[in-house]
Design a protein around this nucleic acid. Structure first.
Lengths: 205, 205
DNA sequence: GCGCCGATGTGACAGATGTCACGCGGATGT
DNA sequence: ACATCCGCGTGACATCTGTCACATCGGCGC
């Protein structure tokens, strides 16, 4: 098991970051970057074609978000261990990522020097979770919002009126008002805009 | 002038990205990374202490945003040429960055291989502007919002009521309503939330 | 079965929001 | 000097929002 080369798949939508990470990790003698993709919906195909040991996925990607890509990967290529890397430490991301069966989750604040070590740990079968994020996740807990409330809040993000939201979700305007009122109450906000902000910050959307 | 080493200052709040860029650019024989900072308000001090030729600044940073940092740099150390690098191609950023006197502006979608070449061009006195961004900037034009309208919209981002905004900006509630009404009209929106979204997308905030 | 809860809806009401007309003063350009 | 624009404000008005009480219906647990 020692002296083996770790085959790595890299997925990040920002070419500059992707390239820089590839160069940096490629310098490690025991790591070989075998695939680089910039879209979430290219991940599975690249993985099947290059059979990496570890897949390093960004959460935010066009086409398909990293978490969904991770879930797909688990289904189509269960042997590949996934390490999620993300810009923002939204607690909701962590929860969803864990459900998708990822092996590790770190934020981009992690010192660059440590990344190679983390990749090795992941390859060795360890779980690596950013401790600050894990704490945040426990603190913020599960979403208190029901499915409908979440839908309504999501629809409210774009700034439409109750009538707009009602049309979009095929509900009556009064019902939309009720859900929004409930969501506002549960988030401790005083307006819909504030509720949207709070829910987003907690990863409930 | 040839065969000289380009001294580079790197500023990005994400340690992973910063480190990866430093490693990658450090591999170039004619580039030396002489300073790495993660906060906008550390840029000037680091620049004065290490006298770099080129400063590569991210727009989004805690403490002080990259554009303001670039303006400060221009004042305190006018010899240093600034290259802005950013995640999102908000047209407003480009305009403000140009006003701050930066020498180059590229998005993080730029292929990693090109970055070293761009740094060399910047050092050689060239201007490097992402062409897609430049076009977008022309298309979206200058902000139609007055200073006050912009302030009120900015304050409205957090989701507070008119009364909250009035308190924050020391205005009367009626005045806040007027500015918001004007901003809503100018952005073609129908609610404040929509106006905030439109203004953000156009880089007017 | 019975109770509870979430989804859905209605009606009513106070308060917030968006629009409009209008006023005043200061800065700026011609 | 004069017009014009912006900053700042007031008052009035229609509409939208947020809250509450209440009702129906379908699951789900016990």
């Amino acid at each position: 098991m020692t002296d083996r080369t770790i085959r790595l798949l890299l997925a990040d939508d920002q070419a500059l970051v992707r390239g820089a990470l590839a160069t940096m990790l490629g310098l490690e003698p025991d790591i070989e970057v075998v695939a680089e993709v910039g879209r979430g919906d290219d991940v599975v195909a690249a993985a099947l074609g290059t059979s990496p040991d570890v897949a390093l996925l960004d959460v935010e990607m066009p086409g398909l978000d990293g978490i969904t890509a991770a879930a797909d990967l688990r289904e189509r290529a269960p042997g590949i261990r996934v390490l999620m890397v993300t810009t923002f430490g939204r607690p909701g991301y962590l929860r969803r990522a864990m459900k998708a069966g990822v092996a590790g989750f770190v934020v981009k604040d992690t010192p660059a020097k440590r990344l190679a070590a983390i990749v090795r740990d992941i390859d060795a079968g360890m779980r690596v979770i950013d401790p600050a994020l894990a704490a945040e996740s426990l603190a913020s807990g599960d979403s208190p919002l029901t499915e409908r409330e979440t839908e309504v809040l999501t629809s409210a993000q774009s700034g439409g009126t109750n009538a707009d939201i009602a049309r979009e979700l095929h509900l009556s305007e009064g019902t939309v008002r009720n859900y929004l009122s409930a969501a506002i109450g549960k988030t401790g906000a005083r307006t819909r805009a504030e509720a949207v902000r709070v829910a987003m910050e907690n990863g409930w959307l």
